[in-house]
Design a protein around this nucleic acid. Sequence first.
DNA 1: GAACCGGTTCGAACCGGTTC
DNA 2: GAACCGGTTCGAACCGGTTC
Lengths: 457, 457, 457
Amino acid sequence: MADVQRLLNQENRVITEPRQKGNTMNGNQQDLEPMLDDVDYQQLLRGDSLLTRIGSSNFASLIEAPAPFNAENRESRHQELHQLEQQPPQEQQAVSNMQFNDLSMNNVCMVNNDVLTSADCGLNDSWGNLGQLVENYSTDPLLLNPTQEYSPVVVPQPQVPAGSRDVSTSFIPDSPPNSQVPSIQNWPGQYDFQISVPVGNKDQNKWCYSAIQEKLYLIKHVTIPLDVKLLQWLDAYITITPVFKASRNRVHHVMPCFNCSTKNSVASSDHIVMVEGQDCEYTYKYADKRPVVTLPLHPPPPGEAASTLLLKLVCLTSCNGGPNRRPFSLVFTLHNNSSGSEIGRQVLDLKCCQCPSRDMLNEDKAVQKPTQSTSTDISNRLMEVLKRSGPAVTSTSEKKKRFTIKLEPETDRRYQNVPVPVEYVPKVKGHVNSLIAAEYIRRNQPCLFLFPEDESQ
Amino acid sequence: MADVQRLLNQENRVITEPRQKGNTMNGNQQDLEPMLDDVDYQQLLRGDSLLTRIGSSNFASLIEAPAPFNAENRESRHQELHQLEQQPPQEQQAVSNMQFNDLSMNNVCMVNNDVLTSADCGLNDSWGNLGQLVENYSTDPLLLNPTQEYSPVVVPQPQVPAGSRDVSTSFIPDSPPNSQVPSIQNWPGQYDFQISVPVGNKDQNKWCYSAIQEKLYLIKHVTIPLDVKLLQWLDAYITITPVFKASRNRVHHVMPCFNCSTKNSVASSDHIVMVEGQDCEYTYKYADKRPVVTLPLHPPPPGEAASTLLLKLVCLTSCNGGPNRRPFSLVFTLHNNSSGSEIGRQVLDLKCCQCPSRDMLNEDKAVQKPTQSTSTDISNRLMEVLKRSGPAVTSTSEKKKRFTIKLEPETDRRYQNVPVPVEYVPKVKGHVNSLIAAEYIRRNQPCLFLFPEDESQ
Amino acid sequence: MADVQRLLNQENRVITEPRQKGNTMNGNQQDLEPMLDDVDYQQLLRGDSLLTRIGSSNFASLIEAPAPFNAENRESRHQELHQLEQQPPQEQQAVSNMQFNDLSMNNVCMVNNDVLTSADCGLNDSWGNLGQLVENYSTDPLLLNPTQEYSPVVVPQPQVPAGSRDVSTSFIPDSPPNSQVPSIQNWPGQYDFQISVPVGNKDQNKWCYSAIQEKLYLIKHVTIPLDVKLLQWLDAYITITPVFKASRNRVHHVMPCFNCSTKNSVASSDHIVMVEGQDCEYTYKYADKRPVVTLPLHPPPPGEAASTLLLKLVCLTSCNGGPNRRPFSLVFTLHNNSSGSEIGRQVLDLKCCQCPSRDMLNEDKAVQKPTQSTSTDISNRLMEVLKRSGPAVTSTSEKKKRFTIKLEPETDRRYQNVPVPVEYVPKVKGHVNSLIAAEYIRRNQPCLFLFPEDESQ
DNA sequence: GAACCGGTTCGAACCGGTTC
DNA sequence: GAACCGGTTCGAACCGGTTC
């Protein structure tokens, strides 16, 4: 239901807001407030349980803490963070320092009615969101004029765009509130940073992409190729940050549930996103305590325009104790390797589930359903007539789909399974057809009947 | 079904995209994401990704080891990693250095509007992709004029082309990702590097080639002659790298299963591909830990246009613990012997199985099936007519087969399931047929009816 | 499907084996091998067995590790075993010793063609199964005459019996195999130990009891009152042990999933069963590493016949990482406080779920469905006739359910599915009926036909 | 409490090595 | 080379926690 609602909203957007490219921000902003179904309680409990476990038996102390919220965990993560910070990649350090400096000048940041103290905003902030925030939304004179950087740098996107809408400063419906939450809005930036899902995937049961929703559906542990495009292949790295779409979950870290996380190695046990073909030790890190995957930007191989990135999820979106049915997106952030500053961002909606094609179809249908009646040819029109005038054949989406009666709720009410001896099937089918036709004639052109109707047949 | 679908799509490609030779990339790109049939569990267990991530080359000791994540494993793998890193294969080192040198001369590489800095391009690249990139696509003035190199250098291919399609930058459905995964897209390069399978093979039970699918079927341990063509026979060598086609297996190394590998000598025990007539000790190596066959490029004997290469596989595509039913291709890469840089690439799809002709037939059929209409009898033909002329009943093949709604998308709209006693099936079908016919007449030649329609039939 | 099948089996038992009270063992023995619906993979991965087997306390690194059988694992398990044996709970120790002594007199126990050496039987046995085994099934002359203890000591049970069937030595369908698995068969014992669920519960949405299945359905964290009855209130204590019903899960410990367990206190974090009104520190223990709830036997208050026990579950039967949809029972064992020996046992089937009434309804229905032939109206009766006299329609329940071919093996050969608009269903049914009737007449009373038959209809 | 959602189950079809 | 057979895949149905 939540998803339906969300999709409906999206659909409405599509209808009421014709897609604007360039300098307006109509990307997935509507998606920012869709979620209805999360269990905050359980999230909180995740930490408690850890305490409990750590106190109890042996294995408890070795659990890879999926839970961020108790004191010990926070401490240990702090330690880990510090360890990381002691030998940080240069750019991280740079960003962190920079932002801290920025913040030192802005003790209080007002964003969307949220008052953030500097402590909230910037301490240990390695996200660079603030810098980005400033770039996008502020008029901080210390920065270069940022709007010039990204606004009209729009290039045609031949492939399915994963999130290719630009960001504007004019409208901030649900802006990333504070330093601990990364932005989830697309911002191609100066180099037109783009992430896209390749078309033509054959195995729709493993993963599929909905162009309608611009959303990727994938099975757990299945590697997805993502194309990274850039106007210029500079020295940079990409960070991948999963972020809940609903604003009330935004501050929570997207992490695998306990069961799923234990399949990971120690280094990546908090990371719901994993990449392949990378040096593991430098890949799974934390940014502001939030698990983040970082990987260097590779230029594409000879003759290819896009660099491919092999990515997989290790926990279901529905997993209790993990995302817990709360939709989340992946934020791909491009960072300049020299300065560490953020120079591009793309957001990819996704859902990690067991039946990607089924779920995509369902959600696509939910999105489209309210929109239009899709009847296109005579038969459909006939059915439409019948449907409107009374009972008849059910609708009807044009697209191929798994036959799910649930999708057409009237269906199972309007049809019944009748065991028919095989040899009678044709007659029965014919009978049915004739009944339909008769019904139609009866309603619209009853005069065509030779004999008066009687129902006793 | 999965294969069917894959093949269907391929078929569609053949139909809707007339084969373009030369500088467009319509080769096996559709096949890049075909795999549907492997077992995720086994995939998880397979050492490949683990090996890749962790860096072990001791595949035998890790593959299929289902409990990879305890501390001991981690430790030993780390150790192995270090060992490997301390003693890299010589040639890898050479290539890597070489490419880095190349790159050091090209600070910025422009590829399809993409600018690459040297730092991004070459560091730790042992695949040679970057060198190739620079050579082929860059417009950097420091380089030789590269666009001339690859654009229209297309030669007619008299034989069955194993993978003779050039690469374009315009459309990349599933490009090879990063340094640890080789590209699997054709790129003839400056010298129009071509690999082809000779026609006219008599013993189709040993090996055969499907022109439809551009795929080689061969029995294990049977040597296949492959023709290598080149515009100019320079001082070069060829590497043969087996790569899984599905992106989710891409990083895994294609290696023979344990049973099959033990039949090889020590040097080649990780190599599923073997060549004949070569000095063994220099042939079976590793590139970025991936088993690779390398062999010098021999000019053809006097009077012949192609140099022949004798190749065989030592493990079945279906072999458990090896490819495990996951389709893979062979990537033939041409390297300049002086610099080691990649100057051409061809990809050959194949399947190593026990019954090549049977399997080719089946898969060819599956590819073509969706193309042709399968109507064989009157009723089906009638339905075809009706379907074409408007709305009606869809076909109903008698033979038991998986009910693939995808192939008949309208089906789910107009029908419901009614069990019919077997003995009555013919009559029911006849009835349906007559009704369909009536419907048809009713629409197109209603005057033929003797009486107006009534429902009392 | 699995449940249906299970229930079918159960139902068949009810029909073919009239309930025998007293000295025959027809209790829930049929349930001993019922489970079909769990995920073996996940079960294998579950930490329970792994922890037990491997003995590591690094839960995170070991859980879900799918390969338990290498030498190291075996070694570490031995180690854990030894560690645990060094500090066993007192009462367990007592029982264990006692039984070991018993065993020392019986070097070989023959049970159902299975020969157990004493080493297999009794080592580390803290369950007392062997003693019970011997008591129940053996005819060893060294023991007290056991058959007298339990055979005809049956008391009327006014309330819903939770599991009041006695145990006999005549038939052992799936006896508890070894020392680490407790018995899950009822054995009232000398004092006629009985556990029952009170009748007349008002809030069926919190918990309810199916008399048909003798199974308790309850919501998580909802306390259930259970009545304990005894012929004589001696000095004893009760242990409550959850045990999976399916034999293949029998050795696994029933424990709450990670999320649910963290809601418990430290002492009870491994216990899926909790009791109220008890001293916590003495309640949650381990027997042979299996989490067990122990509580003293309180005589009922003056004027009451039964002592009440307040019990709740803290994790759902469906919880992933916990029971994971694997049905389990609670084994209530009565122990003599002075000797610690087991003197009675009752088994309570249950399911902890979110919608107890719904699930009970569904499962009750599934149990009852296959029993009665559901033909109620003329058409069904006609079909019955035809089925017996030759080929015709099989029965056809109106309610939507999975089409179980196994129940009606001919079905799939003799029927076909025909989509029928709902509003025409009655007519189609009538049509089919008439066809069937005609067939019947044609066979049995052709003279009734007015016209000669022709097949062209 | 009914409907929904999504992980799981189940049996038919498929695939491909093996046998006849 | 046709048939067999057994592991795998696939889609519909199911189940049960969650939402409305």
